[in-house]
Computed example of a mutant assay.
Amino acid sequence: MKSLLEQKLIKIISTTASSPTLDTASSLKASNHHELDLPPASQRTQKEIEMARNFMMNTVNTVFQPNTRLTLLEAIQCCQTATELRQAYLHWEDVLSTSRIGLKRLPEFKKKLFAVL
C-alpha cells in the first residue's frame, strides 16, 4: 500500500479509519429476523455461522471475479456472530443484485443462505 501511495497510483481520500463492517446494512438488527423469516441469531451454532460466512463469500466470488468486492468480503470475513452476518446480508444482497447472473440466482442463494443464517 505504501509503495502505491509513493508512486502516486492511489491516494488517500479520508484519513478516518473505519472497521470493515457495513454501515449501509446496520439497519438490519437482530430483532428484524422475523422479516427475513429466520430464527433468532442466538440459536445458530458456530458451524452454521461458519457455513453462512463461507456461503456468502463464495457466492460473491462466483458471481464476480474472485476478490473484486473486497469491502464486502472483508466485512463478511470479520463477522463472528449470526447477528453480524445478518447485518452484512443487505449489502451482500445489494451487491449480488448488480449482476444479471446474481439477480437471477438470488432467490436460490437466499434460500440456501437462510438455512444457516
Results as ranks from 00 to 15, higher is better:
residue 107 P to A: 05
residue 101 I to T: 13
residue 78 C to D: 15
residue 82 A to R: 01
residue 105 R to I: 13
residue 66 P to N: 07
residue 57 M to W: 10
residue 16 T to F: 08
residue 99 S to E: 02
residue 24 T to W: 14
residue 23 D to T: 15
residue 48 E to W: 04
residue 59 T to M: 04
residue 102 G to V: 09
residue 61 N to Q: 12
residue 93 E to M: 03
residue 61 N to K: 12
residue 99 S to M: 04
residue 49 I to L: 00
residue 21 T to S: 13
residue 46 Q to R: 15
residue 46 Q to N: 14
residue 19 S to T: 11
residue 97 S to A: 03
residue 52 A to L: 09
residue 106 L to G: 07
residue 4 L to G: 06
residue 89 Y to Q: 03
residue 65 Q to N: 14
residue 96 L to G: 02
residue 69 R to S: 07
residue 28 L to W: 08
residue 89 Y to M: 04
residue 54 N to D: 15
residue 112 K to W: 05
residue 59 T to F: 02
residue 106 L to C: 02
residue 107 P to R: 11
residue 68 T to I: 01
residue 109 F to G: 10
residue 14 S to D: 10
residue 22 L to F: 06
residue 117 L to T: 02
residue 12 I to L: 09
residue 77 Q to H: 14
residue 92 W to K: 10
residue 108 E to P: 05
residue 95 V to I: 13
residue 49 I to P: 03
residue 78 C to A: 11
residue 33 H to I: 03
residue 76 I to T: 04
residue 12 I to V: 14
residue 114 F to R: 14
residue 105 R to E: 12
residue 79 C to H: 00
residue 69 R to T: 05
residue 5 L to F: 03
residue 25 A to V: 09
residue 55 F to V: 06
residue 106 L to Q: 09
residue 18 S to R: 15
residue 57 M to N: 14
residue 20 P to R: 12
residue 46 Q to A: 14
residue 45 T to R: 08
